[in-house]
Amino acid sequence: MFDRLEAFIRHMGEAQCEGALAERLADICREMGFAYFALTHHVDILRAPQPVIRLHNYPPDWAAWFDREQLGPSDPVHRASHVTSAGFAWSSLPAMIHLTPRDRLVLKLAGSQGLGDGFTVPANVPGESHGSCSFATAAGNAFPEHEMFFAQLIGTYAFERARGLWRMRGRGASDLPKLTDRQRDCLYWAARGKTDWEIARILGLRRDTVIQHLKHARERYGVSKRTQLAVHALYDGIICFTDILSR
């Protein structure tokens, strides 16, 4: 069993393009008793300007509908993958996050489109966008619980391979908007709810200077509002949740 895993990992590591990786993932997926996989960065949920990793073999109708309805921002599986670092079965979603009536509707519709139970591996690389790799059964098929640990490693190695291919296209972390130290400092305090005047006092800057720093940071991200800037920077790992929420 472990030999099989090593072979899969090696095979994925040799994939030279995203199409090849997707094909290999689809094969592994079937071997494990799942029907579908989706490997994705979560930045697209904000329609972020930077390119993202996204590979899947979900039913086309479901994927198109999901995008058209802009369900990304509320996708319960993505949300849950931000509250844990280990893989989780979709059946444990209710215990992980608060599911609203719309979440329940989304999950039900996914079922009607052919998606059954799933297992999601969160993929978090500090300084980069959150992502995940999910495997789902065809609706009505049994969830291969005994393959969970196998799926955990496959998901992690698949994401790293996708990340490597993505970087080879020259779209690595270096393509993310870069903030200067001062811009980041100002944003850090702004995200913690401080006013321009307060930030100026904390950092020993003039209020005008703080306003300029935050304006330039917004320009680099191509957003017009401070809240958007803070959310983008959190996703990109320029600032992190523990900094903002601590104390």
């Binding site: 844990t84 969160p122 978090n124």
Partner: peptide
């Protein structure tokens, strides 16, 4: 390692 760290270790 806890599996949650593996993505970072691979990266």
């Amino acid at each position: 390692a806890e599996v949650g760290w593996l993505q970072q270790i691979l990266a």
